[in-house]
């Protein structure tokens, strides 16, 4: 038995097969460099980081999950978020409250088009910063018109409001008759009994039918892996709400489920410097929104003729 570093060739020569020391080394050198080149040429595949986990792949439909299974799912999401962002989030599955139907009312007389709602929403709902995903689009109209063709969304004057214009933020209208829900082939989006249309980001297949069906341009698609700086992640999360999304799923405004289903106001309302945004339970006759619908000049609903019956109302003060 020779020592391991003995000069004696460990591979016995087999002249009949034509393999000797030289050809073996040459073949393996060519093979090794070939494999290295193959690995290098497959480099683009390495960017596919977001392959699905077995747990998520075999997860049941949201409405069929038992409370125990839901707890397991929430734990998995918390682990995934912590792994990705280094922050331990608090993910909850919040159910709709009884006797509550949410309605949003926006005061076109007061809105100055400052876009603070857009960015408060991005911060609250963990939207991708790069590429940019925003649920609210603020449209600027010249006075005397509500023609969508005349709306401008890229306005950037030194100060707002500008004379001769008014502003109308558009976000998900939480329709009573939502076309986006009808077209979803996998039932990944549905209307809850408090009026919020939600998306299960783990069930969505990313076909974008709902985006095409929505007359309000309210749905956003994650074309690439969303990116959120770690220090800007909002750790207060809900399963159907603001938990981080992945590439290839739809998202949209959900009236800040993680806030409104525990009784709080949405983020866009709290940041509005003029108080143009009002939100509440329309089934409560003492709520702000019930007062508005009863007493204010309400410009019924956006694109009323579509028959979508939005729960988002625009109104005037005078």
């Amino acid at each position: 038995m020779p020592a391991p570093n003995s000069p004696v060739n460990p591979v016995p020569a087999r002249p009949d097969a034509g393999v000797n020391r030289r050809s073996f080394l040459r073949t393996s050198a060519v093979l090794a460099s070939g494999l290295a080149a193959l690995a290098a040429s497959l480099a683009p595949l390495r960017e596919l980081k977001d392959y699905t986990s077995a747990e998520r792949f075999f997860q049941k439909y949201y409405k069929e999950l038992t409370p125990e299974e839901m707890a397991k799912v929430l734990k998995r999401i918390e682990n995934e978020v912590e792994q990705q962002y280094g922050v331990r989030p608090h993910v909850r599955d919040l159910k709709p409250m009884d006797g509550v139907e949410f309605v949003y009312a926006h005061n076109l007389t007061r809105c100055i088009g400052c876009r603070k709602c857009v960015h408060a929403c991005v911060a609250e709902n963990n939207q991708s910063r790069n590429p940019e995903i925003q649920y609210i689009r603020v449209l600027r109209f010249p006075h005397g018109s509500m023609d969508m063709e005349k709306a401008e969304q890229f306005y950037a004057p030194p100060s707002v409001p500008e004379p001769g214009y008014f502003y109308m933020p558009v976000q998900c209208q939480q329709c009573k008759n939502p076309p986006c829900v009808k077209v979803c082939p996998v039932h990944a989006t549905w209307q809850e009994k408090d009026g919020i249309t939600v998306i299960d980001y783990d069930w969505c297949i990313g076909c974008r039918y709902c985006e095409a069906a929505c007359p309000y341009w309210a749905r956003r698609f994650n074309f690439t892996q969303p990116s959120i700086p770690k220090d800007r992640l909002n750790p207060n999360m809900a399963y159907l709400g603001n938990r981080p999304r992945r590439q290839g799923v739809m998202e949209k405004c959900h009236f800040c489920i993680q806030r409104t289903r525990v009784g709080r106001y949405p983020a866009c309302l709290e940041v509005c410097p003029t108080g143009a945004r009002k939100f509440g339970n329309v089934l409560d006759p003492n709520s702000e929104v019930a007062y508005i619908l009863k007493n204010k000049r309400v410009f019924i609903q956006l694109k009323e003729e579509m028959g979508t019956s939005p729960r988002f109302f625009y109104y005037f003060d005078v």
Partner: peptide, 22 residues
């Protein structure tokens, strides 16, 4: 009277939609 404010940045126009083109 409510004071004028500086607006927050609008949606990023990306590659194609530069302001003059809009």
């Amino acid at each position: 009277r409510f004071p004028s404010r500086t607006p927050a940045p609008g949606p990023h126009p990306l590659r194609a939609l530069t302001r003059p083109m809009v």
